[in-house]
């Protein structure tokens, strides 16, 4: 087993060290945007239906 080094120089747990320990014990959830598969499927089908629908009737141009 190879030895590993730690940084010395601190003689007692400081408030900063205590806060750091608590932060490492309670890491926050990573940020991100997540989509529900069912909702995505619904949006996809709805969007597809809209694209495939016939164009809005418009008056024929007069000759």
């Amino acid at each position: 087993m190879l030895p590993t080094k730690t940084r010395a120089g601190v003689t007692a747990p400081t408030d900063e060290l205590v806060e750091e320990v608590e932060a490492l014990l309670s890491p926050t959830e990573a940020d991100g945007t997540f989509h529900d598969t069912a909702e995505c499927l619904g949006a996809l089908l709805g969007g597809g239906e809209g694209l495939l629908s016939p164009p809005t009737p418009r008056p024929k141009p007069k000759k």
């Binding site: 087993m1 190879l2 030895p3 590993t4 080094k5 730690t6 940084r7 010395a8 601190v10 003689t11 007692a12 747990p13 400081t14 060290l17 750091e20 320990v21 490492l24 014990l25």
Partner: peptide, 25 residues
């Protein structure tokens, strides 16, 4: 297969607050 001695593998004082903090984490 091999003996395990974590504290002996750390080149630091036994009561180094940083090592104690890491062990607490």
């Amino acid at each position: 297969g091999n003996p395990f001695d974590l504290s002996a593998s750390l080149i630091t004082h036994a009561d180094d607050p940083v090592a104690l903090a890491a062990a607490r984490v």
